[in-house]
């Protein structure tokens, strides 16, 4: 009997080994461990054994069954694994085919530049002030120390609607309006982005409609050195940490002293190249200390308060930053242009 059991175990293990799919394996299970299988038959024949022999044989039967069972399970796992692998192999795809495109638009390059500047100044404690594009002559000119008859305000250069109303020529009227709202009390710390209009023929470098960002700080102890520090900070965040700036004296009716501000060339680092026309510097801003007449007209005591203001053109900055050669691109909305600004 013992020999018989060992023989059965041997046979079963061989068949398990030979089974090469799950069905064959199941046939082996049924054949050897099923109710009608040879091991059950051996168990049935145990009644003929002596009481001493019975437990010994019983243990042996169990050992054999377990050995077969283990072998079955192991083989089953192997076969299942193989089956899965086969299935997966059949499911292989060409991963180099294009993915399902995600449709994605993007900011206009001017918005991109404007938001970057906005965020930069928000970080320095500024708020964003906005105002009307159709403006009163008073806010656009008079309140900015450009009285009627001033040569810098030729009718020919501005889009007037009536004698007193025009399309603003700069965003400075927002400064005048904001100061007026403060009723002579500082601090004022704003930047004013927006569209402006001038009576120019559209060509590669002129546009009758363009954008501006101006900044204004008015408080009791604002110094011109603060203007320099602020703009240097701006230049470094906008154009790179190793940028420097320089002031060149200039003239604007609404500031005194007035300066033009150059940033060291971000293309060549200041050695001179095509972008900076060999000078190492790029003119980027106009700025100055707010003219006392402007402060007084807006209700600020110019003996007590001082302030600085600056202004720049997002078009110019975008053109420099991205190497754009024609200002008209900004207003044609050619998708082949707009799409180029679709990434970080």
């Amino acid at each position: 009997m013992k020999e018989r059991l060992q023989q059965l175990q041997q046979e079963a293990l061989e068949k398990i080994e030979q089974a090469n799919d799950l069905k064959a394996l199941n046939d082996v299970r049924v054949a050897y461990l099923g109710k009608k299988g040879p091991i059950t038959e051996v168990l049935r024949g145990m009644g003929a054994l002596s009481p001493e022999e019975r437990p010994i044989m019983g243990a042996l039967v169990n050992d054999v069954r377990e050995a077969i069972q283990r072998a079955l399970e192991a083989k089953q796992a192997t076969l299942e694994q193989a089956e899965v692998e086969k299935k997966l192999a059949a499911e292989a795809i060409d991963v180099t085919l294009p993915g399902r495109p995600i449709r994605r638009g993007n900011h206009h390059p001017l918005t991109r530049v404007i938001e970057e500047i906005e965020d930069l100044f928000i970080g320095m404690g500024y708020t964003i002030a906005e105002g009307p594009e159709v403006e009163q002559d008073y806010y656009n000119f008079e309140a900015l120390n450009l009285p009627k008859g001033h040569p810098a305000r030729d009718m020919q250069d501005s889009f007037y609607i009536t004698e007193e109303i025009l399309l603003r020529t700069h965003t400075s009227p927002v400064q005048a309006r904001t100061m007026e709202k403060h009723q002579g009390r500082g601090p004022v710390k704003i930047i004013c982005p927006g569209k402006v209009y001038r009576r120019d023929n559209d060509d590669a470098t002129h546009s009758h409609q363009f954008t501006q960002i101006e900044g204004l700080v008015v408080d009791e102890n604002i110094r011109m050195s603060d203007l320099k520090g602020t703009l240097r900070e701006f230049a470094r965040k906008m154009f790179g940490e190793d940028r420097d700036i320089r002031f060149r004296p200039s003239f604007f009716p609404f500031t005194e002293p007035s300066v033009e501000v150059d940033v060291s060339c971000f293309n060549c680092g200041g050695h001179g190249c095509g972008v900076c026309k060999g000078t190492g510097w790029i003119e980027i801003l106009g700025a100055g200390m707010v003219h006392p007449n402007v402060l007084e007209m807006a209700g600020f005591d110019s003996k007590k308060y001082t302030g600085f203001a600056f202004g720049m053109g997002p078009e110019r900055i975008a053109m420099l930053k991205y190497g754009i050669d024609d200002i008209r691109h900004f207003y044609q909305n050619d998708l082949r242009f707009l799409q180029q600004f679709n990434r970080v």
């Binding site: 964003i128 604002i222 603060d226 602020t230």
Partner: peptide
């Protein structure tokens, strides 16, 4: 000479900047 002007930042009441 503006090159000799120091670069400082405004001192005074600091308000947080933010969007409306």
């Amino acid at each position: 000479g503006y090159d000799h002007l120091p670069a400082t930042l405004p001192i005074g009441e600091a308000n947080p900047g933010k969007l409306t």
